[in-house]
Amino acid sequence: MKARVDITLKNGVLDPQGKAIQHALGALGFDGVNDVRQGKVIELQLAGDDRAAAEAALKEMCEKLLANTVIEDYRIKVL
């Protein structure tokens, strides 16, 4: 089973890398980019085929390691 975790900075947490990307896009002539937020994607290959169990395990993985919940949100998708 494949799963995907998207990790993004929480709203309100300043993202200096996102800002740098936004400025670079502006320098390339892409006008109208109002905001850029940079995050990360983690793809996992899981054993078994119990979706509910996988989702529960992924949630625990996010809370314990994959995300820093002080500043980051995560979204889990079992594919």
């Binding site: 947490v13 300043l14 200096p16 890398q17 740098a20 820093n68 002080v70 500043i71």
Partner: peptide, 11 residues
């Protein structure tokens, strides 16, 4: 310890 350490503001 509480809080977080992020990328330097000037990158």
């Amino acid at each position: 310890l509480p809080g977080a350490l992020m990328r330097n503001a000037g990158l």
